[in-house]
Amino acid sequence: MVTQLLTFLLIFMIIAALKALMTPRLLSAAISLGAVGLGVSFVFLLLRAPDAAIPHIVVEILVLLLLIRAAIRREVKTVSGQRDIFGAAVAAVLLLLLLALIVPVFSEDLSFGAQPVWAVTNPQVELASAHYLSRGLSETGSANIVTAVLLAYRGYDTLGEATVLFAAILGALVLLRPRARKPLEEK
């Protein structure tokens, strides 16, 4: 059941993304993108990851609002310009080559949501995820194992992720400052 729903959602998201790419109107492109984002949130919910779904859905709605506002305010409503046939052809060929490798790997070698392949052949080894579930509470004191992993076992990664966000914001603030250059003062 979950698999069918996931497949349906994926197809829906692909169609919405294509629509966003192809449509000449900025507003409908923004709305289609919003549909893609909501699809992702539903996927998270289906996979029982509310910790990921909550922020995602909120951010999606916010971004959608902003995009719609931006699309309405601009006088330019359509995107024009010729598409580069040669570039598109090269991209398509590369994409096909990549798909030729990716499709068999994902359809045959790896099954979705299953245990790592290596763990199936070596059942005697305890995986990190099993350790988190069995000992997470007693070792970290955090009843929510997701938080235990995020902030205790892999807190260093979380610090890094917060830093990525910080760098992005700082970069945006830097690029939008009113005046970038100033004349040199000669001494």
Partner: peptide, 20 residues
Amino acid sequence: GHLSVGGGFAGGIILACSYV
């Protein structure tokens, strides 16, 4: 966040929403 579903990222985003 350390007891039930949630956490700094999710909560922070929702806090920002109340301002937005």
